[in-house]
Design a protein around this nucleic acid. Structure first.
Lengths: 367, 367
DNA sequence: TTCCGAATTGAATCTGTTG
DNA sequence: GCAACAGATTCAATTCGGA
């Protein structure tokens, strides 16, 4: 076990190689604001699975997902959660993600240890793997649990208005529709194979960190893998500590995070008060990486320019608000359809942001 | 405790008033096909919970009693689940619905008792109650767990094709979007207040029963409430046994169910899978003269050719065997469905031999 | 270069009957 | 109980290759 990467200064990025329990016990107590944990799911797969076209499904058969029994898994869970609890500030919170194989044990253990559940959140996958044999319902979601350190903890971070802004000025619900991690975001090893079997999408972490941390907070991920938590934390100006046992994952994570740029502080500010109404969640574009925080939008004639912030609000000179509100403001009008007014540059051409919305709609299928 | 309503004949509708554990223990073992359970999680409303030693549990909403209350709840859960397990047929299954307050304990207990999870299913509420104080995500879903009696249980009911038909010919996913129970469906008492605080929508039970029971099966609901399970079971031609402690809920349930009419048998038929159809050996086609010995079969691209022999085996170059074996062999695969792979020429066109099988099935159906 | 069809792939507790 | 074998079974998104 050893510290791999540590940077002093305004942004701490720490990756520790080793067992997560030992590593957490070596950290100062009550030192982190949020823990995001993606522990092994304890899948119990039978023989090989083939698709109808007889191709083979690449199973998660790694050693780190092998447990002898529920009892052994529960003990593992209690141990890492106790270590996590120690390093968590009293005002801190924890997120754990899992599937039906493990999430009920995870949830019960959280409660047993005194964590207090705020929500269970369902990640609905827009493109899950089908059930090839027609034996069950398509396993189309995973479950996240968000819990504070204790029941009597009244202070915790929840950026309610930022979530609302991200969701078209409707309260963010407990079910989130997001695609799984594929395409360019999916990290590959030298052979072109996936670098990690269970890489999570950045959009998921974006929402988690935006909702329950503030810029400058420290996020701990005890099952760091290829570093999605670190990548999004850096992008959003949060400090992070990642712990990972496998050197090969750390290597990938370091290179990945090296290339990430932190958004400018003014872009990372999130809405703290009510804003004008919007119809389509513009924030989804940022969450999904179609626009970066800090991206510049202009009108077709380039008379006005605005900067995009992480929660989907935009800034033009002194004014902050939705794409519609700011669009109306700069034109001196009462109303404006921001989707067609604001443009972004791609391939040297200005295009309305509405084409990005269409892209998202196409990807997400139903509303 | 007493039996309130029992009807002999083709459709059994039984409502039992009393404690669900005692009542289940009084039923014959291995007698029900499906259990649907909506257990209480608010221990105060659950009322009359007792510890194993029969001592009364007092108010459990104080922080100091959180751990004690989880233990008591787990004990309660183990007790009713064990009783449920006893009355369940070996081919039977159980559904349990809950929210984050109790579902993790319920799920872990199911696993501890040997039930085998098939899916966790998310009921997404299209019209959830908002979070008025803006302190959390809108609690917009509940979780259902579908589990069979044991891991090595190979036979269970899942009407895959019926679910697929219900979902526009796409596999039914594990997330279901349904409205909460309101309007005319919501039962009221004499004062116009809701008769039961957590009445479930019939649409939810409709999907559960259609997916995992057949007409004529017996469904048990140990927390019957105002009888949604019974109402839908009757509508769909399933027998049911409902157990409920409170007389006032039973009264409402009886009147409700009395008004329900069972659908006509032909309307209750659902789309079935090919697996359920009669098996036709390939040799039958030759026997019946639909293919002559010596007939030539090819794949759609005409890359491979095989000759049919009198006993239903086929020959391709040196290899002899079943249509499936040879189909797999020539493609270099482990398996192949010979019915759809091999084609024969008729009217100058290539057609899969599967249409001949369909012809035989149609003829057998008439006979 | 662009467009269209084919191929690939993702945290999966993934068959049933006969001999 | 195990081996052999029949034969049923997939959605969304991206990438690749040929026209």
């Amino acid at each position: 076990m050893g510290r791999v990467n540590s940077k002093a200064g305004q942004s701490a990025e720490i990756i520790i190689q080793g067992d997560c329990i030992e590593a957490m016990n070596a950290l100062p107590e009550k030192s982190v604001d949020l823990i995001f944990a993606d522990p092994p799911y304890n899948l119990q797969l039978g023989g090989g699975l083939t698709r109808p076209d007889q191709s083979k499904v690449d199973a998660v058969d790694d050693d780190w997902d092998k447990f002898a029994s529920f009892q052994v898994y529960d003990e593992f869970t209690r141990n890492w959660m106790n270590a996590a609890r120690r390093v968590l500030k009293d005002t801190g919170a924890i997120w754990v993600i899992g599937s039906y194989h493990n999430i009920f044990r995870v949830g019960a253990t959280l409660q047993d240890l005194g964590f207090w559940m705020m929500n269970d959140v369902v990640w609905r996958k827009s493109n899950p793997m089908p059930n090839f044999r027609g034996t069950r319902f398509t396993n189309a979601h995973e479950t996240l649990i968000w819990a504070t350190k204790s029941a009597d903890q009244k202070k915790y971070t929840f950026n309610y208005d930022a979530m609302k802004a991200l969701n078209d000025d409707l309260q963010m619900r407990s079910d989130w529709l997001l695609p799984i991690c594929t395409g360019g975001e999916r990290l590959k090893d030298g052979d072109g194979d996936k670098a990690h079997p269970t890489q999570k999408p950045e959009a998921l972490l974006h929402r988690v960190l935006l909702a329950t941390t503030n810029a400058g907070d420290t996020v701990l991920d005890p099952f760091f893998g290829t570093g999605t938590t670190g990548a999004v934390a850096k992008k959003l100006g949060r400090n992070f500590v990642g712990i990972e046992r496998e050197e090969r994952y750390i290597k990938v994570a370091r290179e990945r995070i090296r290339l990430i740029k932190t958004g400018a502080p003014e872009d990372l500010k999130v809405t703290t008060s009510k804003k004008a109404e919007v119809r389509i969640p513009f924030g989804t574009l940022i969450e999904r990486g179609l626009l970066e925080p800090g991206a510049v939008l202009t009108d077709p004639a380039k008379r006005h320019a605005a900067r995009v912030r992480a929660d989907g609000s935009i800034v033009c000179r002194d004014a902050t608000g939705s794409i519609h509100k700011i669009g109306a403001h700069v034109q001196g009008l009462d109303a404006c359809n921001g989707w067609t007014f604001w443009h972004f540059k791609t391939d040297g051409k200005l295009k309305p942001i509405d084409i990005l919305r269409q892209k998202v709609r196409a990807e997400m299928g139903e509303a």
